[in-house]
Design a protein around this nucleic acid. Structure first.
Lengths: 224, 224
DNA sequence: CCGGGCCGTCAAGGTTCCGTCAAGAAAACC
DNA sequence: GGTTTTCTTGACGGAACCTTGACGGCCCGG
């Protein structure tokens, strides 16, 4: 499951690409201009960014430069301009790859695989500690009082989403969508079950949680 | 000072490229066919490889695959063939980038800069020990309680991937992709077989592993 | 005071996943 | 060319996991 941010102002192309990418099990977010691209990148922390250089509000190369001030996430540039100068400028600004339009979808997919294959192990997903809990997002490991805690895949997934947005409220529907998919946005009973299991494994007093907090009627929050 | 291996059978083009690259302060070695490319790569340990796919003695994609069995050195492919299939095959075999001929020299230089910018910093501690195990990643050798353990190529490859990311979870699909290639991401039975074999050779009690740990539903982890 | 959401808890199917074994196919070796 | 090693594939029991439904407590408004 790779989270992908697609920055493309042509909504027809954006939709077509998003559909194809999703069938290849990418989790796709779409941004339509440079400003929202920068915002989305910092809030949703994608694993890879696909960026069209021709944007309505700002120069694509400047978008790359801004991103590179704080993240190493692979950036693959799409462009209708096939000029040498654009390629060199984009690559030197920090892009990882450059694909000229028109391109084949298989080529884009192959370049995506190549990009994420060599992606540096993420350092911008640090180790989060809270009380006697230590949660290492990169290593997918949880310790409580120094001892490894065994989580099931779904338990881990739920915890991961909450910890990634630690301190902020995660709406029930958001959580369900990220873990189980858009079709499960109303299965709130899943959350009750899994939050209970996580509390049993992680909280000192599961009936009075201090880290996995319920916001009644809204959602859940991880409290560092 | 970057050491660069140029694999190109057209001697006119090879000479022209070598001259240009040297003026940009690359240290260039030239190989004229796949066989010498593989030899040179292992003897001179270049920092980056530029590879023409059209070689007299063997298929360029096979050259990539051979290189990728033992090194992560960035590979940039040059090719006169601009076909989708060639690109996808080369990238999936492990190439980092693909430049179609004719290309501008500035583009190639920019892609070289991009490739070495994101190159992983060299491993400084290639010998990993865990309990009575000693694993030498550079020498491809494993000892248990001082005695050499004999591993098959695939067993070693699996162990290598796990040990490189020691302590962190390696997802099933990641492991399959790195060892067998992207087409095998769902062949989870391979993992079951090879993990069992590795445990039989490396673990004190293979049915209760302490180093090669299963994370049910997620993947495997090497525990130092 | 009582009913309806909402949440936490529990346990029982049913499904998926893992370890194990074995045997045939392919590759490497001599 | 024959032998040995290695890889691939299938099957199966058991374990781990997900889903689902039911029940009770709590809070709030009627």
């Amino acid at each position: 499951m790779t989270r992908l941010l697609l920055v493309e102002d042509d909504s027809t192309l954006a939709r077509a690409l998003a559909i194809t990418l999703r069938t290849r099990s990418y989790v796709v977010t779409v941004a339509r201009d440079g400003g929202s691209a920068l915002r989305d990148a910092s809030s949703s922390r994608p694993d890879v960014i696909v960026l069209d250089l021709g944007l309505p509000d700002m120069d694509g190369v400047d978008v790359i430069r801004s991103l590179r001030t704080w993240t190493q996430t692979p950036i693959i540039v799409l462009s209708a301009r096939d000029g040498q100068r654009d390629k060199v400028a984009a690559l030197d600004a920090g892009a990882d790859d450059y694909v000229a339009k028109p391109f084949g979808i298989e080529e884009l997919l192959a370049r995506l695989r190549a990009a994420s294959r060599r992606a540096a192990p993420r350092e911008d997903e640090p180790v989060v500690s809270a009380g006697d809990l230590v949660i290492d997002l990169a290593a997918a490991r949880v310790r409580r009082a120094g001892l490894d805690v065994r989580l099931t895949p779904t338990e881990w997934h739920v915890l991961e989403v909450l910890v990634r947005r630690r301190g902020t409220l995660v709406a029930r529907a958001d959580l369900l969508r990220e873990v189980w998919g858009p079709a499960y946005e109303r299965q709130t009973n899943y959350l009750r079950v899994y939050l209970a299991q996580l509390r049993a494994k992680l909280e000192a007093d599961p009936s009075r949680p201090t880290h996995l907090v319920t916001e009644s009627g809204l959602g859940y929050r991880f409290e560092p």
